[in-house]
Design a protein around this nucleic acid. Structure first.
Lengths: 255, 255
DNA sequence: GCATACCTTTCACTCAGTGAAAGACCACTC
DNA sequence: GAGTGGTCTTTCACTGAGTGAAAGGTATGC
């Protein structure tokens, strides 16, 4: 599967997946040609696959001939245990935080070198936030990202800091030494903050969710919980307390 | 695709989908043999498909050899426009209701003859509720279900009422004539209620979400918004008001 | 030790899948 | 209204990917 999907010898399965993976946040509805280009496959091949996927209700086809992910694939996705089990346990705690603070609340995990947002509760009148469930952002520019990076394996941290870091705003911290010091502080203090680092006008604060350790075993950071608000600072302790209470509760509730 | 998946002549695509669709709420982790049985396919065939699906990160395989839906399929599912666009628009309104009432809030659509739950916000200390995002329940036993059934095409209503109706509790209303009168009342009054009809000890109230009509065009019920609480009655008006405000907001916010 | 129930591999057959090429169908432009 | 560039759809002869019965492993339990 590491090889090119288009090379002869690639299986139908890999081609199907290539077609499905051709959809993304910015491209939820695509025509045959676009899909073929993105999946790097001949048009007729994609055309045939699409017909079968639509027949199998995995995709839908709208009036103008474009394709989109269908209800049954949504169903299937909702069964992914790694994402949904955590999300289900955390859900009532997110509600509590949201009710207490009226801020945007995030539940996120690390997926490789990115933050993957599992859930979000947003107020109507809050800051415009980029993330939604299923979206990804760089690890170094968000509160939850810093928490997850700080508790990632040391080698991944080194790798990450050695690479070029994206710079969504002028306040994004990209200098490796400064970021490294921040990560140490995150581990020491048990929380991470950002100010205008991902979106101008938005600040965030985040804490790790730690899976309750087996007696004697190591506890493990499995996710992060964060809040995004327009202005921070004076409310810091109140927000942090709400987060920590919830994070502890989620950690304890996990199987 | 209407034909049997196992019959010779069925495509690889249909077999892949049969394997994926073999997972469900009660069976999120399955072994090769189980999957083969559920997908009605020979074991080696499924085995080969699974290997490729795991290689393509569509599925994961845990230590004991069982398979589950993987992160990338979750990602793909989150791109289904029909589910997630509505869910995204509605999300802040659900939060508002939840914050105002501290009750469990549901967003649901009709999928054929079932309620499909798109989102749920639940308090920690509330009634045990069966539904979660992605789960399905019968149309006649829940508040949101009655709303969606009441606004479904007349022929579907007739069909539905003619068939045998499931009976999750002793309070479930299954007599066609009584249910038909209730549906008329739902349309007339703009809300539906249940008492112990799906789960003993749980009551619900729900309203339709109507897509803002094009000038002169018909408005259309696209979803339902509901609340589940332990005891109802005296709070009825307060809950109903919260729901209606939100439903109107969602309807107006939709593209 | 045998039995049961899985998971995994082999292998010869063959039909499902392939993709270049051509055809149909737009929606514009000049 | 002929021409053009862009889609989507169909055809068709070739061939190797996919098939599944059967056999080989492996891990249980009794």
């Amino acid at each position: 599967m590491s090889g090119n999907v288009s090379t002869p010898g690639a299986s139908v399965v890999s081609r199907v997946l290539a077609v499905l993976y051709a959809f993304d946040n910015g491209h939820r509805r695509l025509g045959v040609t676009d899909l073929a280009r993105r999946a790097d496959l001949p048009v007729p091949t994609v055309y045939r696959l699409l017909r079968e996927l639509v027949a199998g209700e995995a995709l839908t086809r709208d009036a103008d001939g474009r394709y989109a992910i269908g209800r049954r694939l949504w169903d299937v996705g909702m069964l992914a245990p790694e994402q949904t089990e955590l999300q289900q346990v955390a859900s009532p705690f997110l509600s509590d935080i949201h009710a207490a603070t009226r801020a945007t609340v995030h539940l996120a995990v690390r997926d490789g070198r990115e933050v993957l947002y599992l859930d979000r509760l947003s107020g109507r009148a809050s800051v415009p936030v980029v993330s939604r469930a299923g979206s990804r952002l760089p690890l170094h520019a968000t509160g939850v990202g810093k928490v997850l990076l700080a508790h990632a394996p040391a080698e991944l941290q080194d790798d990450y800091l050695a690479a070029e870091l994206r710079r969504p705003t002028v306040h994004t911290i990209t200098r490796p030494d400064r970021l490294r010091r921040q990560l140490a502080a995150v581990r020491r203090e048990g929380c991470a903050t950002t100010e205008d680092e991902m979106t101008l006008g938005a600040c965030s604060i985040a804490v790790p969710i730690t899976r309750a350790a087996a007696p004697g075993g190591d506890s493990e950071v499995v996710a992060a919980l964060g809040i995004v608000v327009p202005t921070l600072k004076r409310e810091r302790t109140r927000l942090l307390t709400a987060l920590q209470v919830a994070a502890r509760g989620i950690g304890r509730s996990m199987p």
